[in-house]
Design a protein around this nucleic acid. Structure first.
Lengths: 101, 101
DNA sequence: TTGGAATATCGGGAATTACCGATATATATT
DNA sequence: AATATATATCGGTAATTCCCGATATTCCAA
């Protein structure tokens, strides 16, 4: 758990938005059931990219950055990569700020 | 409470160190009683700078950056400026991460 | 009121980050 | 095998951040 990597990952408006969108995927990605997300794997890159309005390469990089920071997990299924929040990481970060930092 | 400004402020090793030092000033600045810190005002810039090992200008900027983010408060007393943690901000941030982000 | 001490601000070079377009890779379909 | 789709990676420019030295400002002391 690299604190600085986490805080850097959170220091960007688009990435923060993505994380809050992933809190309620069914709300923010209403068409996810009929396309990417079969189970509870998360949301695929393309949907996130469309909603964010930045290029595919940028969003792909942002998502892998969030993954390296441990804030999301990625699952590859066929041609899609599904990203979902790692709630444990947020809980740990909250506790870290409340007690360590 | 500008989230991004806060996370940017926390995205630096030296600034994180300063914040943890300020959690226990008497431990990390053992000579603070006989010099700067008369009451509970915090720790003066010079002591923080010595411990951090960076230049005076850098530390001064880091401290005002932390202040702008709301993570510390500054009190000017004579020629010294004393910085101390704003614990309410950390609590608020912890809660924010636990519930909003 | 002049000099010194503590801090703040200014200007700048090197490194990092924010995005992009182009291209590569992997998978699915025909 | 050839093509199409989804994602990842690469190379690059503009903006931001890191940290410095030099200078300005504020306050105190002689």
């Amino acid at each position: 758990m690299d604190q600085i990597e986490i805080f850097k990952a959170l220091s960007n408006k688009t990435r923060l938005q993505i994380l809050t969108w992933l809190k309620e995927p069914e709300k923010h990605f209403p068409d996810h059931k009929i396309s990417c997300d079969h189970n509870n794997l998360g949301v695929c890159v393309g949907h996130i990219q469309q909603k964010a309005g930045l290029t595919q390469s940028t969003i792909s990089e942002y998502l892998s950055l969030l993954q390296r920071a441990g804030l999301v997990t990625a699952t590859r299924m066929g041609q899609w990569t599904y990203y979902k929040r790692n709630e444990a990481a947020f809980e740990a970060l909250s506790n870290l700020i409340a007690s360590e930092i």
